[in-house]
Design a protein around this nucleic acid. Structure first.
Length: 295
DNA sequence: AACGTTTACAACCGCCCCAAT
DNA sequence: TATTGGGGCGGTTGTAAACGT
C-alpha cells in the first residue's frame, strides 16, 4: 500500500516551464504568498504538480535570487562549508544569500569537484587524493564513526532533544570538523593515536572552542549549537510565544536562532571588510543572513 | 556544415521528516 | 500510538548550448 501521488500525474505538464506558466505562478504567489503547494497549481490555473511549482519558485522565480556566476569568494566558502557539512546543500545554501541548494549542488558537481581534483584534493573527503586512495586500499575494519559518517548522517541523528548539553556537544563535534579542515593530516580520524593522545587532542580542541581567540581556528558560526552568549536568546526564542511556526524541527529552530544573531559570514571569513557585504544584501534591501546584531 | 562529445543546469523522482489527526 | 499528507531534501536525469573534430 503506497502513498497516494502528490498530484494527478495524468493531467500535469512536465518539462520546461513556459513564460506564461512562470507568470501565473509569480502572480499567484504575489497575491497569496508561498505555501500550500499541493493546492496551488489548481488555484493558480497551472497544470503542474505542486512540487514542481515549489521547485520552480524556489530555484528560479524567487525575487531575491542572485543570478550569475559564482565569485571566487563564494567558491571558497562553498568548499569550506562542504568540508563541514557534506552534501547538505540546503544548509550550505542557507549561508549563501541569493543562491539555491540546487544551484550550489549543480555548481559543485560541474565546477568545484574538478577544481578540487586539480588541486589534488578529494572532493568528498577534502583530503589529499593520495591519502584518500591509501585509506581506501587499507582496511575496512574501522569501527568508530568517521567525519563522513557524521556529516552524512540524517539530521535526526544529530539532535534529539534540545538540551543545552547536546547543543554544546554537537557544536564541539562540528568544531572538530573545522579543525580537521585546517589540519588535513590530523591523526584523530586515522585511528593511529593512543587514547591518551586523543584525550589530549580533544582537550586542546575543547580549549580552542572555549577560547577561540587562542588560535587561527576557522570559525564559521556554522555549528549546530549556540554559543554560551546566545543561550539566553535561544531560550527565549524557544518559548511558547516565540516558537517558530514552521514546526519543532530543532534544525529550523537552531537556524533561526543563528540567523537572529547572524553577522555577515563573508566578513567573518575575511572576504569583506565591513560587517555587511553587498553579497548578502538582497535586491529588496533586506539582509537575509547579515542582519546587524541586535543592540 | 555536419556530427559527436562535453558541459551546464533546470527539472524530476523518490525518500524522509514531522505536524496534524 | 499509528497513520496520513504536505513539504523539504539529495540524487539523478534530460536536454540545450558550447565545443571540438
Amino acid at each position: 500500500m503506497g502513498r497516494s501521488p502528490c498530484c494527478e500525474k495524468a493531467h500535469t505538464n512536465k518539462g520546461a516551464w513556459t513564460k506564461d506558466e512562470d507568470q501565473r505562478l509569480i502572480d499567484y504567489i504575489r497575491a497569496h504568498g508561498e505555501g500550500c503547494w499541493r493546492s496551488l497549481p489548481k488555484a493558480a490555473g497551472l497544470l503542474r504538480c505542486g512540487k514542481s511549482c515549489r521547485l520552480r519558485w524556489i530555484n528560479y522565480l524567487r525575487p531575491d535570487l542572485k543570478r550569475g556566476n559564482f565569485t571566487d569568494e563564494e567558491d571558497e566558502l562553498i568548499i569550506k562549508l562542504h568540508s563541514l557539512l557534506g552534501n547538505k546543500w540546503s544548509l550550505i545554501a542557507g549561508r549563501l544569500p541569493g543562491r539555491t541548494d540546487n544551484e550550489i549542488k549543480n555548481y559543485w558537481n560541474t565546477h568545484i569537484k574538478r577544481k578540487l581534483i586539480s588541486r589534488g584534493i578529494d572532493p568528498q573527503t577534502h583530503r589529499p587524493l593520495k591519502e584518500t586512495a591509501a585509506m581506501a586500499s587499507a582496511t575496512s575494519t574501522i569501527a568508530a564513526p568517521t567525519e563522513l559518517d557524521f556529516r552524512n548522517a540524517p539530521k535526526s541523528n544529530f539532535i534529539k532533544t534540545p538540551s543545552s548539553l547536546e547543543f554544546k556537544h554537537n557544536e564541539f563535534q562540528l568544531k572538530s570538523n573545522a579543525d580537521s579542515l585546517e589540519e588535513p593530516n590530523c591523526t584523530a580520524s586515522s585511528g593511529m593515536t593512543t587514547d591518551e593522545e586523543q584525550q589530549q587532542q580533544q582537550l586542546h580542541k575543547k580549549k580552542q572552542y572555549d577560547n577561540p581567540s587562542d588560535g587561527e581556528e576557522l570559525n564559521l558560526e556554522l555549528s549546530i549549537g549556540i554559543s554560551s552568549t546566545d543561550s539566553s536568546r535561544v531560550s527565549s526564542a524557544n518559548s511558547a510565544e516565540s516558537k517558530p511556526k514552521l514546526g519543532n524541527n530543532n534544525f529550523q529552530f537552531l537556524e533561526q536562532a543563528m540567523v537572529a544573531k547572524a553577522v555577515c559570514l563573508c566578513w567573518q571569513l575575511g572576504f569583506q571588510t565591513s560587517e555587511i557585504c553587498s553579497n548578502c544584501q538582497n535586491p529588496n534591501g533586506f539582509y537575509r543572513f547579515c542582519r546587524p546584531l541586535d543592540s
